[in-house]
Write a protein that binds this DNA or RNA. Structure first.
Length: 619
RNA sequence: GGCCCCGUAGCUCAGUGGAUAGAGCAACAGCCUUCUAAGCUGUGGGUCGAACGUUCGAGUCGUUCCGGGGUCACCA
């Protein structure tokens, strides 16, 4: 069976040169090596033949070319090939390389200092580098997509942070991005909250109870389940089998009646539905605003859920689908390694899949995206495979444009989150907690001086949310992750605050040096012959940022940015500890270090933005 | 049971088929007359779930097994 992921990632891929306005060092190395191979051996190397990577710290050099894969093609030994190539490269590309060594099958190349100092001078003040010119390719990113019967939880936060971040990363890589959300605002689940409210609320509202709207409605959903379970227990005690009791419980029957009335547009039910959804939206908006989620377009299931039916009937007429004796309509996907799947119930009402077909069509009609990315949990891998196959079979032009960005569930150290067992971590609660911890920690460190009250509130949000977002984004989305409350609000090590701190430190240097760094220092004098190993290493890392964005976009993986940012901050802190900027030995040396600090700060700021994280000037 | 995903240090995670497998946390030992110590330096810690296979070379690719999870609803 074909793997959806591979197929779609392949078509998302763009050749680097079409989106990059200037060549990266790795590109230049590849080009130079190709030229050398062609000159020395008359061998035309493809991109696949050339494996260039960072030189391991225990060896001398900056970039390393692996020779093993080449020796057969040019019929020589690694040692001979390495020294011939090295000689050629240093001789003919002295602006690129100034030295080399060959160890076993590896050619280690040392970059010419001028190349790096020029990079620092050219980019130190360019806050938007990494941003690629638009390719005009349009991508839709659907994320968040909540139900309206209960508040958002930790799983939604992972979804939202991934979705938002992926959208920004794709923009930075040159795509035209539409952020969207489908609100599941209708169905049996919302009717449960409605019924419980009608019976037990005595007209209470979020206003009268001073409760956030989504939590208010969620409380009645919980109430419903209490009543429901109670009724089931009674029925089972009276001798009814549990399966039957679940269907026969009076409160469930009443809820189903309510759903029917909703579908018949019964005015009272519709009004109640609208009111309660209104409360929920107000609550969601508050949370979205706080955590920085936004959407270009919001779809509502109540508007789209009927749209898929016509496509199903059409498919049936064309013989692509089949009808069972009871009148239900199915698709046969056994040839694709999947099962038979229901598309329309025997009573003609639609199922989840039906409305998804309708929504896919609406999206395509409105935006014609080249890719339509769905950020949805991996529990729906099968459903999304089926959706893709169904759309293809029905001959939809967007069938192969659907891409499921599948992320793993967030689990607690105590096991899975289960709403029924009350072990769900509420989104608002955890955000409050992490911000409050930021406050406590800042106060303990005595770092509140020089801030106004408002600035402190701002700072705690920046740090708290930074910790939270980084914690959820630093792991590959595809993998399940364990949520440890203590680690998520940690401010040391591989965390958002560590990176924010590095940024704040650099800003502090600039303040102390009279803001000269961001204004003057356009220097043609990058004539330093010598760079310290630390300076060189940092510059090599900094130069890779555009490639990192590209890789992250290609893999649809924000953790690539997170890991890179951390390594950069770590390296900078080491540099900072051993290289004084204010009291540098010479003026050119000071200029270079200021440039390094400035480029580092700009990249941190840019990279953190791609993760939805702000950076403070002071902390 | 069928299909899919995951097993890397005590814990949480990185790791393009390439060199002696890396971080963070936790533990221990150091570093603030000097640009923010939310930092830096050092020490200990590994049968990469297991076995075969492919390869000059496997944590990475293949097969089988073991362990964990997801999914296979006229639910969403």
């Amino acid at each position: 069976m074909t793997n959806i992921q591979d197929g779609l990632t392949e078509s998302l891929r763009l050749p680097l040169q079409t989106i990059s306005n200037s060549m990266t060092i790795v590109d230049k190395i590849n080009e130079a090596v190709s030229e050398a191979l062609s000159a020395l051996y008359d061998f035309k190397a493809s991109a696949k033949d050339l494996q260039v990577s960072l030189t391991k710290p225990e060896f001398t050099g900056d970039y390393t070319l692996v020779l093993f894969s080449l020796i057969k093609k040019v019929n020589t030994t690694p040692d001979v090939l390495g020294s011939l190539l090295g000689d050629f490269l240093v001789k003919n590309h002295e602006t690129l390389f100034n030295d080399f060594n060959v160890i076993k099958g590896f050619l280690n190349l040392s970059l010419a200092p001028e190349l790096l100092t020029k990079f620092a001078a050219d980019t130190y003040n360019n806050i938007s580098f990494g941003q690629q010119p638009s390719t005009g390719k349009k991508v839709m990113v659907e994320y968040a997509s909540p139900n309206t019967n209960k508040p958002l939880h930790l799983g939604h936060l992972r979804n939202i942070f991934i979705g938002w971040s992926i959208a920004e990363i794709l923009k930075a890589d040159g795509y035209n991005v539409v952020k969207t959300s489908i609100v599941n605002d209708r169905g049996i689940h919302i009717c449960k909250s409605m019924l419980a409210w009608e019976r037990y609320a005595n007209g209470a509202t979020p206003e009268t109870t001073h409760t956030k709207g989504d939590h208010f409605v969620g409380d009645y959903y919980v109430k419903f389940n209490e009543i429901y379970n109670e009724e089931i227990r009674h029925l089972v005690n009276d001798g009814m089998p549990e399966e039957k009791a679940k269907k026969e419980a009076p409160v469930m029957k009443a809820t189903q009646e309510m759903l029917l009335k909703w579908e018949e547009n019964e005015p009272h039910v519709k009004a109640l539905w609208q009111t309660m959804n209104g409360w929920v939206y107000k609550g969601f908006d508050e949370t979205y605003n706080r955590i920085g989620a936004d959407f270009d377009k919001t779809y509502y299931e109540s508007d789209t859920y009927l749209l898929g039916k016509d496509f199903v009937y059409e498919g049936l007429a064309q013989g692509k689908l089949f009808r069972k004796d009871d009148g239900s309509i199915w698709i046969d996907l056994t040839a694709e390694g999947l099962d038979e799947k229901l598309l329309l119930r025997s009573d003609g009402t639609s199922v989840y899949m039906t409305s998804d077909i309708g929504l896919a069509n609406s999206k395509y009609k409105e935006y014609q995206p080249q890719k339509s990315i769905y950020v949805i949990g991996d529990e729906q891998n099968y459903h999304m495979k089926v959706l893709q196959q169904v759309c293809k079979k029905l001959g939809m032009p967007y069938g192969d444009k659907i891409f499921h960005l599948s992320y793993g569930m967030v689990e607690l150290t105590t096991g899975k989150m289960k709403s029924r067992e009350g072990t769900v971590v509420d989104a608002d609660d955890i955000v409050d907690e992490v911000i409050d911890t930021a406050r406590k920690h800042t106060e303990e460190l005595g770092k509140t001086k020089g801030f106004s009250k408002d600035q402190l509130i701002q700072l705690y949000e920046t740090i708290g949310l930074g910790a939270m977002k980084f914690y959820l984004l630093r792991v590959d989305p595809k993998k399940r992750m364990i949520f440890n409350p203590e680690e998520s609000i940690d401010f040391h090590g591989f965390t958002g605050p560590f990176i924010q701190y590095t940024y704040a430190r650099i800003q502090s240097v600039f303040r102390k040096m009279g803001n000269t760094a961001n204004t003057s220092y356009v220097s043609d004098d990058y004539s330093l012959e010598q760079l310290s190993p630390m300076e060189k290493e940092l510059l090599v890392i900094l130069e890779q940022y555009p490639n990192i964005i590209h890789q992250s976009a290609e893999e649809l993986n924000p953790s690539v940015i997170a890991v890179y940012s951390f390594q950069l901050a770590q390296k900078f802190n080491t540099f900072y500890n051993s290289h004084s900027i204010a009291s540098a030995e010479t003026k050119p040396e000071q200029i270079l270090r200021l440039q390094i600090a400035s480029v580092t700060a700009n990249i941190i700021k840019s990279a953190m933005h791609l993760l939805g994280i702000n950076v403070p000037d002071k902390m």
